[in-house]
């Protein structure tokens, strides 16, 4: 985190309905953060400060909660979020090679976004589709029985689609 984050100017009014519904409901911090992430795509630092102020909490507490859970992101993500499952079944069935393929093909590290902002890559806990292992999700869509070749094809198709637009 650097100082720039705090100086960000997110449109905080977008959060009003969420805060109206939940700010006064005890125990709703995670729900608020989830909805904030829905709105902004990630959790900008000024939004975290805003939530702290509006819920009568402190930034330390809100950031503490947000950084505890893997769902929350503090950087904008690409248009396509690739979540590669690293569950046991996927591991046994070679998810490591799939991870390598994605990293090499897109030149992107785990937890990072490609230079063109199209893809973010994240290795995640078990997605519960073990019988299709190895599995990945791109945004809402699940892809199973992956091989290095099939992964490349899936990514190429998305790239083609994007290039056409």
């Amino acid at each position: 985190m650097n100082c720039e984050c705090v100086k960000q100017k997110s449109d905080l009014s977008l959060l009003c309905p969420v805060l109206e519904e939940y700010a006064a409901v005890p125990g709703s911090l995670i729900t608020i953060l989830q909805q904030a992430q829905e709105i902004y795509g990630y959790l900008p630092m000024d939004v975290i400060y805003h939530i702290a102020a509006e819920t009568g909490s402190t930034p330390a507490k809100v950031l503490g909660v947000a950084t505890f859970y893997t769902q929350f992101r503090f950087q904008p993500v690409g248009k396509y979020l690739i979540m590669l499952c690293n569950g046991t079944a996927c591991h046994v069935n070679g998810s490591e090679r799939i991870a390598q393929t994605i990293q090499e093909y897109l030149q992107v590290e785990n937890g990072a976004t490609t230079a063109d902002g199209l893809f973010s890559f994240s290795i995640v806990a078990c997605l519960g589709c073990c019988s299709l292992s190895p599995v990945m999700m791109i945004n809402e869509e699940t892809y199973g029985n992956l091989t290095p070749d099939s992964v490349k094809m899936i990514l190429q198709e998305i790239q083609k689609k994007e290039a056409a637009q």
């Binding site: 690293n86 569950g87 046991t88 079944a89 996927c90 591991h91 806990a125 078990c126 519960g128 589709c129 073990c130």
Partner: peptide, 11 residues
Amino acid sequence: DEGDPGAFMDR
């Protein structure tokens, strides 16, 4: 919160 990797009966 079925977290055990490899279990999906709850889902």
